[in-house]
Structures are given as C-alpha cells and as structure tokens.
Design a protein around this nucleic acid. Structure first.
Lengths: 122, 122
DNA sequence: CGGAATCCGGCCCGATACTG
DNA sequence: CAGTATCGGGCCGGATTCCG
C-alpha cells in the first residue's frame, strides 16, 4: 500500500516509463526481497512458515522479515496462510504471479555478471 | 569503486546470480541514476554540464548529483570531461556502454506498467 | 562553474523485550 | 509460533557554506 502511494506522489515529476522502472526497483530492490522470493520459489512443494524463513535466511531479523513479507504480499507476489490447529502457524508461498517475476530478472542477472567482469578487468 | 567492494564483501552470503541482480539494482536503483541516464541519453548531441543537469533535473541537489555522476562514471556508463578556457566547465555524456543499459530496462518498464494496473484495479 | 565540507533531520534496520 | 513496540546507531540525503 505504501509503495503505491509513494509512486502516485511521483507522477507529477516523471513519465510513465520512469515510474514503472521505479516500481520494479522498489519491488525487487531492498536487502531481502529477492532472497525471500528465490527461497520460496525453490521450495514450492514445501510448507514454509515464518520461523523457518527467519532461521534459514542468513542474518535477517524477524522485524525485517515481517516487513518484507508484508510488502511482497501487498504486491501479490506471495500468499500468507494462517493455520491454528493447536499451534499458530503462518505459511508463506510464492504465487503464480510471483513466479512470473523470475524470468524478468534473467536479463539483469546476465548483464550484472558481464558488468562485474568488465569493471574488475578494466 | 565503493560499489564493487560492497558487493565483493557479499560474495560469501549469496550466489552469483543474486549478486549480479544486486549489482544491477545498485547501478540502476537509487533516486536519480535512471533519470540522469535518460536525460543524457536524450541529449547526446548537446553539451551538458553540471549546472545544466542541476537546473533541469527537478529537485536534485548538487551534492546528490555529484555523487550519482561519480557512481555512473565508475560504472563506465557516462564520461566526464573537464574544460577550462576562461571558465571552468565539466561536461557529462552517456557512453556507448551506457546506452546499452536502456534496452535492458524495457522488460522492467513493461512489467511495471502492467503491475501498477494489476495492483490498482485489484 | 564544479564541486567538497559541514551540519543536521529522518528513516532504515538491528537488538531486545513483550503480546496473543 | 508470529509477530509488534521500543530504543538506538548509522547512513541517506537536503540546506548551507566555502574553495579553486
């Protein structure tokens, strides 16, 4: 929700294309979103709950995890499912729409790898 | 330079693909880089100096402009040319390599536009 | 003109403690 | 277990000032 508001405020100062790019960068950017998305994408058949994510994604605090998950859910990239038989559990999973983001990043990955070589080798 | 060091430090915690994506996000991300790149890309035949950029890109301070330009130059996306006949002037221009970034972003623009519609319309 | 230096508010984000 | 509340350090980034 916040993301959308932020970007609508920007509409006066930049064109549609630039705004769209910034939407993408906000959704993919940040410290953890890509890592979470990759983690969930590689474990579609497993039940992943909050604590499991917190434990297995190196160095991320519960606070940040919660925040990132909320933003990913707002953008329809993951689902949040609460169960409470005996013990409260909340499961997260990547959506079909979320999976559609992955191929989008392949060009970027390719460019990023070449770029690193270019910069390092001069 | 800073960017490269930052990313090399990350190598232990993430794979090559994730690192490449983060390289991209750092290079394209931030508040102003895309706008500067677009501005220079659309004015390849003109002489663009520092003050002109500061004046014409809405709301950006000299400090940020300087910082962004330095990072773009480090990444070989723009050139910096100093002249001093009578009055000091520094001209900036997009490189061929810099131009190669533009098509890279087209998928993102397309996705960003569709995504905005999807989120707003539900 | 093209910056660098300084000051400073704000938010990002980690650590810790607490709630349901 | 799944978060939220609070505190606090650090860095991002704006405003202003100064220098060559």
């Amino acid at each position: 929700m916040k993301i959308i508001v932020d970007n609508i405020e920007r509409e006066t100062t930049c064109g549609e294309e630039l705004r769209a790019m910034r939407d993408c960068l906000e959704i993919l950017g940040g410290k953890w979103k890509l890592m979470i998305l990759r983690y969930l994408n590689n474990r579609q058949h497993q039940d992943i709950h909050f604590k499991k994510l917190e434990r297995e994604i190196d160095g991320m605090s519960a606070k940040m995890l919660s925040k990132q998950l909320k933003e990913l859910e707002t953008n329809l990239l993951i689902t949040r499912t609460v169960t409470d038989d005996n013990q409260l559990m909340v499961f997260y999973a990547i959506t079909e729409y979320g999976k559609s983001v992955t191929p989008l990043t392949e060009n970027l990955v390719e460019w990023g790898i070449k770029h690193r070589k270019k910069i390092i080798e001069g």
